[in-house]
Nucleic acid binder design. Structure first.
Lengths: 207, 207, 207, 207
DNA sequence: GATGAATGAGCGTTCATTCAT
DNA sequence: TATGAATGAACGCTCATTCAT
């Protein structure tokens, strides 16, 4: 079984190359999103990064840690994007539309909840804790925006936390569509609009 | 864990026992729902059923087949329950409330879509096909009920397929709740009511 | 996993059907010759015989026994055919030609020695003994014919046992041919003739 | 058998040890020759090499690959030995005698053809191809020597390919001998001489 | 900083065999 | 006579992890 022998020692960094640690995290994130925690092996990650498994372990003590780091980074990014959108002066409905569009346009379909669930069995309590904190931050962002809109009377009063969760949840509805039905929405914009309309109406009712 | 050494060969038939084949399917269903396809091993299933792995294979040729059979049975059951509820004379909103309650009361949280995704890599095309058929049947039931309600003017016109998917999808919102927030809904009824109210409002808007 | 349920109890024997025991032995023989001992499973045999594995075990206590019985029967048959040919009045060379032809025409290529070797690991000493007896009988037949020919002066004196073994051995030469070379012998007759000519010349020399 | 628990991770390199990869190949070759492809398990190989199965897989991706590599190496070695002998100035008969002796002196009895057959089911087309190439090289060597001898008039004209195959094939005749008969040849020399005499006579005849 | 070599545990699957019916 | 149900032991293979270099 012939192996490509890489040269030993620290490789000269080529111009514009990402540090190995980041490459690994980036690559791993994409792979986890695509196939889910159990179906991504450390070997897979290493191969795709063009390093050896041992190198991956050099930067991340365990697979669980790699996953945790990857997910936290991802959630933080999402949170920041959402925050940026929610910080604008546009009306809430428009802001939500932009968030929805951003989600739907991401190449991989993220259903954070489903993801976590399948990984949690393998994580340490501490790791679960860290991830939940990041998840929490993500939800809080939205929750606060909704709460503010309620207090301003922009939308009727309702449970802001629940409605935040419902919003994130609704963005995963596309995962349940079969190919044919998916095609009936010619652009992401149209699907986003449908979802936001429905959501906005949902918010509209007193409860 | 002590290994109970059972005797070789065909065991003496005891009365009142569920047939092994059913025990396995039941147990497997619960386990798959709890941990997801990749994290449930045939050994796990066997142990929980108090039989050996070979026995599991006696009834189900492969893990993929066991999964397929389990999921189809599950979806068929859900479909039948939904169908029964939708066949009553109660107004649609009440019917949806009952369906939601039934879902939320099931011990295991079902997010069929997430499940399928992680399993699909391991299934044959035929198996995926079978499961999609069962999934389809499940959605169609609801879709038709919604379409009928629209044509009767009970709710405004909207995409019945999309709204059906949104409904099923919303039932999984609880998965995203942390323990604390979950406790804020003292009964399943209350959570179901919140969800249905939101959903019904969503349906209410013209689009 | 649906199984074809056969009716319980003794099945009515259809006109012209072989007794189950014989069917199994016949089928097993063919399968062992084709694939070798380790690659034929009791399940395979059962399926091809249209009975259950338990039925095979009803007639043959173990796989090793089934193999032993099959091989002994086979060798006995071959011996009898050889004996019949050697009992004719034709000259030895013609007789050998007929034996060679019979071997080469058998659909499956028999290399008894190679066969035994791969099976012997799994057989009991007693079983090995039985098979060697049958093998011995097979070789003796030929050995005696050769010895007689030598004493009659039909061929020069030589080690009759060794020459018998060489004869049987030479019949397996075809197994080593690649497809292309095999085709260069348009008929079995031609190949048999080549082999016999070579062999006869070999016998011809004094030693 | 006590399990020697070796330490995890990369072992300290001791001097003068054969590289693990070679140990495995050597050991595997011997085992395959002794028991045949199906009866040698990767566990067996590993145990005999004093490494774990995982180590075997570290060097050889599959069992089929291990087998292929082992057989090719073996055939190449045999070919080289034969080539060396055939390159000498001695008369062909003497050369053949030396080849026969070398074969018969090898601890393991090689019947390549029988081997391949039982392994082929498990090999990829590519692997079969590689092995057939090595086999071919082995036969060609001899075939050419025979052809040259024929054109020089050292032996009568005959099918050089067929006679080459017969030669290799005859070297396996010892496999068919029972213990008693084997003992009647007090030295390998004597057996080799018998075989070569017979073979040479066979070659001698016109055809 | 990065690698090559090795492990132990587990996984999906097969198989010879056993036993009550 | 023949079967259906079950077992225990292997088998080929993968994977997360470890450690010397």
């Amino acid at each position: 079984m012939k192996k490509k022998h890489r040269t030993l020692g620290r490789p000269r960094k080529e111009h514009g190359e990402m540090p190995t640690e980041d490459t690994i995290l980036q690559t791993a994130t994409a792979m986890f999103l695509q196939k889910g925690y159990p179906l991504v092996s450390m070997d897979d990650v290493a191969e795709k990064c063009n390093v050896t498994k041992a190198t991956v372990y050099y930067y991340y003590k365990t697979k669980a840690e790699l996953f945790t780091d990857a997910m936290i980074q991802l959630m933080t990014q999402i949170k920041q994007k959402s925050a940026a959108i929610l910080a604008t002066n546009e009306p809430l409905k428009v802001q939500l539309f932009h968030i929805a569009k951003a989600h739907l346009e991401a190449t991989v379909n993220i259903d954070i909840t489903a993801f976590m669930k399948e990984a949690k069995v393998s994580l340490s309590e501490e790791q679960v804790g860290e991830m939940e904190k990041a998840e929490e931050a993500l939800y809080s962002e939205l929750e606060e925006a909704l709460a503010k809109a309620m207090s301003k009377g922009e939308i009727p009063n309702n449970n802001p936390r629940l409605t935040a969760l419902i919003f994130i949840n609704m963005l995963t509805v596309r995962n349940a569509m079969n190919e044919e039905f998916k095609k009936s929405f010619t652009t992401t914009d149209k699907l986003a609009k449908h979802i936001i309309d429905f959501y906005w109406n949902g918010l509209a009712g007193e409860s």
